[in-house]
Design a protein around this nucleic acid. Structure first.
Lengths: 352, 352
DNA sequence: CTGAAAGCGCTAACAG
DNA sequence: CTGTTAGCGCTTTCAG
């Protein structure tokens, strides 16, 4: 007795009493089929629980039904920013129902290695398009992917005047305005912004928006410094800031990771948060709720961004039926690290 | 002028002056080729920077050159345990050089959804095998994947007497023994172990090993409780434990996430760590170094586990040439949360 | 040790 | 509106 045969387009065609090309058309939503016929084919496929073999379609020159996501970071930052997990889960939530897969590549190496990964993925026809995260200044990926002639969607705002399909929150400013009002209402006189590395587009934007929001709220113009998005740098920057006689009464960080590390460093130096110092982060990673005090932050709709990016990409790939889900505005989440009465005078030196 | 042709096996055959089947053999390491010929073919492929089209190979009935990793967790835990990122990076480090891709699926839903994902991935011939993480009690995935007749490798020890290929640290006990000696040397009289949920295999093992290690080191038999691996439960368990008159002088947690959340809760209750209470975690996630005090933990070679799992899977898939890299022993990392002089008497009540 | 030939399952062009 | 046909690029017998 021969082993059970894999069901193919042929079986479905036979069951529906049509030709294989009719089945193909039905499955790919092409025109040129009587609605009744299409219906019959679709239910035959359903009955046989058949769907086109991605390998065969790919070989034939059509799509892979798979999208690529390449993440390139130092090994530590990878674990640091659980950021990605949520974005991926969001993307998955639209990809899976459309029977698309996600090829993930986690790189800890150089930029040329990154380019090679893209190139190879395209050359091997493993993906139909890419989702890019973390928009960079002078982002080399755009040109590369255009050369490779493969669609892509960026999460975040592209650098400069680049014309690239991208998704972003409706109103990225919203949460920062709330944050500014919150800080100004608390009466902070000296506010420091410790931002991430300058090679990301969002870093500068976030910083500028923060400064603008504080000014708009009638607060003192914040001073700003840059760190490297990692814990070590955030610590150093925090220590330096707190050593100054005119030390800040509030520090805002470019992300939650830095805020957590910074807050710990302040505590280690003997400062009490939020009594001596208010701390705020950005992203609203769950982690911010596990530390003491819990960290006030600006929540981004990371899941929504992942879902929107995936949808936009599917549209680029020709799936006109997919609609792009809205991304929620950013939003202030007030937690313990800023829950304090009005600051009028700088707090006394901490006892160490 | 016609558009540039994709280079195929034909071009390589022509350049090397052999037949296409010879090229195929050379690329797949099959026997039946003169070493010199093989050499010539390989360099021709190199020169044209050609490698077999995965789609064509797959269609032909050979492999996909892609492995699957399905992670199934609540949305919060996903971000919580950056654990995965390291494992994936480790796997990638062996997959990429072998030109294998990784299909990632992040699920936040039910177990039946999980089974469907496996089934579909296999049916669509999207992967050649799977890497499984987080060995579970009565793990249903084994039977499913055996039914689907697809190879897989488990990270961790399988449940019960299951015969499944798996990878694990050489000596998982090593770090716990060091930890026990460390705690016992500090003179702790009452030690509590707050473990993770009972549906994972490693949870029970870790707990038992910890208890055994403490006893072996001459310490007091620890009491144990289970939480849900998430921050909320860890907090609750911690609060309950600290409310008792015979509260512990040291709490060991099943992972760093819980330890961080637990430590914060203790601080919120007014306890000073490590003065009133020692805290230890497990995993050595970078996050443990960002909080104050930094968390003593047992480091696992997560990257090594990912790499070993990927290698083992490639071997299962017939790539006899890959060797399985060693996984480092677990190892105690002493940080601030246990750096304290000897405990003789229970500390006084904290002032709240 | 090598080459010729068949076909994996699908899609798109074209003829009916 | 439907059916026939010709490959996509590769691997694998099988005969030389």
């Amino acid at each position: 007795m021969p082993p059970r045969q894999r069901t193919t387009i042929h079986d479905v065609a036979a069951l529906a009493g049509v030709s294989r090309s009719a089945v193909s058309k039905a499955m790919n939503g092409k025109t040129g089929l009587a609605p009744a016929t299409r219906e019959r084919i679709l239910s035959a496929a359903e009955a046989l629980s058949w769907s086109p073999s991605p390998a065969a379609s790919t070989l034939r020159g059509s799509r892979t039904r798979s999208v690529g996501l390449v993440i390139s970071r130092g090994p530590d930052l990878l674990t640091a920013d659980a950021y990605f997990a949520v974005v991926i889960a969001g993307a998955e939530s639209v990809l899976a129902p459309q029977r698309y897969g996600l090829q993930l590549h986690l790189l800890t190496g150089s930029q040329t290695a990154e380019a090679d990964v893209y190139r190879q993925l395209v050359r091997d026809r493993r993906v139909d398009g890419f989702i890019l995260t973390e928009s960079r200044i002078r982002d080399a990926r755009f040109e590369l992917l255009r050369d490779l002639d493969i669609p892509f969607v960026l999460i975040g705002e592209p650098w400069g005047k680049e014309q690239v399909t991208h998704v972003q929150p409706q109103d990225a400013m919203a949460g920062l305005i709330q944050l500014a009002q919150h800080l100004v209402a608390a009466g902070h006189q000296r506010i420091l912004y410790i931002g991430g590395p300058d090679d990301f587009v969002h870093t500068g934007q976030r910083r500028e928006k923060f400064v603008r929001a504080i000014e708009a709220a009638g607060g003192p113009t914040p001073s700003v410094v840059s760190a490297a998005f990692d814990a070590d740098d955030a610590r150093k920057a925090t220590r330096a800031a707190l050593a100054r006689p005119d030390r800040p009464t509030a520090i805002a960080y470019g992300n939650d990771t830095m805020a957590i590390a910074g807050q710990s460093e302040a505590q280690r130096l003997g400062f009490s948060v939020p009594r001596d110092l208010a701390i705020v982060g950005y992203d609203s990673l769950p982690m911010g709720e596990w530390v003491f005090p819990t960290i006030t932050t600006v929540a981004q709709d990371l899941h929504g961004l992942g879902a929107a990016a995936a949808s936009a990409l599917l549209r680029e790939l020709g799936d006109e039926t997919v609609s792009i889900p809205p991304v929620a505005d950013s939003q202030l989440i007030i937690r313990e690290s800023t829950q304090q009465q009005t600051y009028s005078e700088p707090p006394g030196s901490p006892q160490v």
